[in-house]
């Protein structure tokens, strides 16, 4: 009796999981992702992955071919038409956090085959080019601090807020 009940519960849960993740077929899709690759100057971002999945319905828009989604770029299709889902799908799995170190430059140049993926942007670039590019098209937030608030050391190097330069009347006087 207990066994039957357990099986029923399991089946129900399974159906629920399938319903929730009916868009992308992955093993574990996080609802929220904390992005803090530029926490030196900006607070981390709690990225609402689930909301973006529901809005876009197409994993390939951000994850290219790695989730097994159909790719549309004619250049990508040449190799990845049926390449299926990859083991690594996270942004930071492919996009280097530090793309311009001598080692990273060498890795990029030495990769095989030496044709595509040669001009792969770094992690920060991939976030901003991807997110901001899409936000501009879709009417999402586009201001820097709409997504991540600048922290104190950010204010220091931007000479902003309490670190703003003292405004003097000098520039106005110079016009007279």
């Amino acid at each position: 009796m207990h066994a039957v009940k357990r099986q029923l519960v399991m089946a129900l849960m399974g159906a629920l999981v399938l319903l929730v993740s009916n868009v992308c077929f992955g093993t574990s899709i996080p609802d929220k992702i904390t992005i803090n690759s530029i926490q030196k100057y900006y607070d981390g971002v709690s990225f609402n992955h689930a909301a973006h999945i529901n809005n876009l319905k197409d994993c390939g828009l951000c994850h290219h071919h790695t989730t097994g989604a159909q790719v549309s770029d004619p250049n990508c299709i040449r190799c990845h038409k049926n390449s299926g889902a990859q083991a690594v799908v996270s942004c930071k799995g492919c996009h280097a956090a530090e793309p311009f170190t001598p080692e990273a430059l060498k890795r990029q140049k030495d990769q095989f085959p030496p044709i595509y993926h040669m001009d792969k942007v770094g992690l920060k670039g991939s976030y901003h080019l991807g997110c901001l590019g899409c936000h501009k098209k879709m009417g999402g937030p586009t201001g820097c601090q709409d997504c991540h608030k600048r922290n104190v050391s950010g204010d220091v190097i931007f000479h902003s807020n309490i670190y703003a330069p003292k405004t003097t009347a000098e520039p106005k006087q110079s016009h007279h």
């Binding site: 100057y41 770094g122 670039g125 976030y127 080019l129």
Partner: peptide, 19 residues
């Protein structure tokens, strides 16, 4: 062997550093 400061901070990777 490190890229200049402007290249490193650029959020949009406007600048690509390399040979």
């Amino acid at each position: 062997g490190r890229p200049p400061a402007c290249v490193e901070i650029c959020p949009q990777q406007v600048m690509t550093f390399g040979h």
